[in-house]
Design a binder for these strands. Structure first.
Lengths: 341, 341
DNA sequence: CTGAAAGCGCTTACAG
DNA sequence: CTGAAAGCGCTTACAG
């Protein structure tokens, strides 16, 4: 079918070796005559030769491909991350294989195994759930991996996350500074460490301001059916604490649903009497809740750090002289957007 | 490093052939004894053997990977398409390599060459711009390709698009039925066939209703800097036709920017005196312009048809008995959402 | 029932 | 300055 090195070599009465050297740019280094080199280039162009990268990868053990596993590529946050990762990876000559786990742990595990069999040089994973069989196997076999968005503190693995506790603290602290005292927290999935950290930021901000933490102001929405769930959660809070005056949302998804709730219940959240804060943004905020205080996730930094750290490990794992790899981690600050009341 | 067939074969004193047959499920077909098969399976499990798919692909010429090239994976429309394509492809055992062209033709060309060198079995491309050197080369060499979103009518290639002309016609027709007469069209990139078709739908609806097409109601926004551009365009239209009463947007992106314009100019677009229609949706419409008439793009159908058609061609191109391939195309209807006034 | 051998298309010591 | 040869890890005719 395609044109191979052999075809060029035969046509020019050279060896595959010579052709390979010339085409891979090692012509001068290997002392191939300028004339021979030109003949090779001309012939390659004439036959429109394109190297078979599968063969090269099989030989070198380097595929120049990284695997990206996300909960869902259609989610705008992950889609932006993917774009950033793609462009950073491309700068270094790497392509991307992408898979969505759909937050199903067995899918995630299957994708990891598949990517490993396809010999990606490393993987960037936003893990789903607490289970982590295949991720552990990767780490144990020194396969280059980087986790982001969520991570497992006890695992010796690269990760990039945001400063969940600190950003949450700052948001809630700002609400307190603006005079709000009955601040509800709306959160989800307590088994996710990320959410724990955000709740901790909330709790610390309150206790630093000597405000008692009221369990009635704690709203936990299960991930499945959260659209319905948030209605009953908010109803419950309003019933238990009628003078609730502010809301801290641990993710933009919950904030959006709550805004819909307020609209349906005829509560004008923008009349100046309410404090609002959310981790991460949504384009709807600008319109629906211009007073929302926001911790913007640093998409670019997450992507560029993820690629940088992963490629470091890949390079080191290809270097026989390198010693034991020490995992690297990065905690990135959010860009805070505070509203004056 | 990894465990190979050879390791298993040596350990069990079998040939690589036998091990390969057992592991690929051809054990019974090849008449390998049940005992031998069990020993192989047990050993593979014990050594946690994972096949090197690169080697398999090099041998068979089948990589079970398809390449997806989009203008940008961070765009919500393309992200949703990608998700759909991924899940359809996965059903058939295919993985996805993804690349964003960023609407730069040379990037698109480079990605096509790269994917070809990486031996993807086929590519799904949302082409950018009119240039098409590498796409032509693919088609000429019978490489399986499917275009979507945009296409080149003169090329013998698979494609999936929506019924641009018809959906536009219906939207504009609906505005006319609701009594609007001075309907502006806001569009972009006239060299894109897609936009031509949408403009044609607009024009046909007007002329079928015997409404003169007023050039002053034609607003064309260049793609670069369209945010600024749309302001001057709309200002011009309002100046030339002060009693303009409706707007047809050929894409949701333009509609969003226009809504911002209306807001800035203090025009209450939702007071019941305006007709609005847009190709494709945006989550902001629900809030900012509840009266927007919308032609919803059929994301699922685009994705599933794209994969189906591409895989057909891949299968046929792997089948030596197959005759010449005849390209397949699909024009999908939009789901129309009409507002009563 | 099982194996020896060739080949997919590269790269890279080794040799001259 | 250039080449013959081995090998990456598979699959698959061919042979017995």
């Amino acid at each position: 079918m395609g044109v191979s090195l052999k075809d060029i070599a035969e046509k020019l009465n050279l060896s595959k070796t010579t052709v390979s050297w010339v085409l891979s740019g090692q012509g001068n280094k290997k002392g191939i005559s300028a004339e021979t080199q030109n003949r090779v280039f001309a012939c390659a162009r004439e036959l429109s030769y394109e190297p078979n990268l599968l063969a090269r990868s099989l030989n070198t053990g380097i595929s120049k491909t990284i695997g990206l596993i996300l909960p869902s590529i259609s989610d705008s946050f992950y889609a932006h991350i993917a774009h950033q990762i793609e462009s950073e990876a491309e700068k270094e000559g790497y392509s991307l294989m992408i898979a969505s786990s759909n937050s199903e742990i067995e899918r995630e595990n299957a994708m990891i195994r598949l990517f490993r069999s396809k010999k990606v040089d490393g993987m960037i994973i936003a893990p789903t759930k607490i289970s982590k069989r295949e991720i552990s196997r990767l780490v144990d076999s020194h396969y280059p991996v980087l986790l982001f968005d969520r991570y497992f503190p006890e695992m010796r693995v690269n990760y990039v996350i945001i400063n969940n506790e600190e950003s949450s603290y700052k948001l809630v602290r700002h609400l307190i500074d603006k005079g709000f005292r009955k601040i509800a927290i709306i959160t989800t999935n307590p088994h996710l460490l990320t959410m724990d950290m955000r709740r901790e930021g909330y709790a610390n901000a309150l206790s630093d301001a000597h405000i008692r933490i009221n369990p009635d102001l704690y709203g936990e929405v299960t991930y499945v059916n959260y659209q319905d769930n948030i209605y009953s959660t908010l109803d419950r809070i309003f019933h238990a604490v009628p003078d609730v005056d502010a809301f801290f949302f641990t993710t933009h998804i919950l904030a959006i649903e709550a805004l819909r709730y307020f609209y349906d219940r005829g509560i004008d959240i923008n009349d100046g009497n309410w404090g609002l804060a959310s981790m991460h943004e949504d384009s709807l905020f600008r319109v629906l809740a211009p007073r929302m205080n926001i911790a913007h996730f640093p998409i670019e930094e997450i992507g560029s750090n993820a690629v940088r750290i992963l490629l470091n490990q890949i390079r080191q794992s290809n270097d026989p002289a390198a010693g034991e790899y020490v995992p690297e981690s990065k905690v990135l600050p959010c860009r805070m957007e505070f509203r004056d009341q």
